[in-house]
């Protein structure tokens, strides 16, 4: 979007310049200089994007051992996943950031890294399995009006056909 806007402005400037040059040439009664409008079109930036050198793998941070600290090796461990923070982990395992820092002898709350094993007081329960929506063997014999489906969690029983008589009345 930014590049497109820039191109549009560039065309205007060059076109404006071309008009100016053209009118100037006319006022001087000289042969007009061909206006290189095609240049403008050809001026679409086709420059190859510069190759950004691949980032070198940053060295895994190392935790400076906290002197006189004993990790809670009696606690279970979890492995830090991408996006994890000590605060978020603490919410899952029922511990404060300070407790986790102390239990793992971390220099600070910012020094965890992906793949690191952390001692936690309890392992969070696994997420509940995703229950697939059952495919109903019997379809509803009609289409629900908007918002009138009451039983989205159940399938219908088979349709029962009824031989009936119907009659409309004036009242009711």
């Amino acid at each position: 979007m930014h590049r497109r806007l820039w191109l549009f402005i560039a065309v205007l400037v060059l076109a404006s310049l071309a008009c100016t040059l053209g009118s100037r040439n006319e006022s001087n009664n000289t042969v007009p200089t061909p206006i290189p409008t095609t240049v403008v079109i050809a001026a679409s930036p086709t420059s190859q994007p510069s190759i950004t050198p691949a980032p070198t793998a940053s060295p895994r941070p190392t935790n400076t051992p906290v002197p006189n600290c004993t990790p809670r090796r009696d606690w279970p461990t979890i492995v830090v996943q991408p996006g994890d923070t000590l605060f978020g982990i603490g919410l899952q395992v029922g511990a404060t950031v300070e407790q986790l820092v102390a239990a793992n002898c971390l220099a600070s709350a910012d020094t965890i890294y992906v793949g690191q094993a952390l001692y936690v007081p309890s392992v969070p329960p696994p997420p509940p399995p995703i229950t697939p929506i059952p495919t109903c063997p019997n379809p509803w014999f009609f289409v629900f009006d908007a918002g009138l489906r009451r039983d989205t969690d159940t399938c219908p029983k088979p349709v029962v056909a009824l031989s009936a008589f119907g009659q409309d009345f004036e009242g009711g």
Binding site: C155, P156, V159, V160, A161, S163, A164
Partner: peptide, 11 residues
């Protein structure tokens, strides 16, 4: 006369 239909949720 008509052939009506009757259906109820399962579960």
């Amino acid at each position: 006369p008509f052939t009506g239909r009757f259906q109820e949720p399962s579960g």
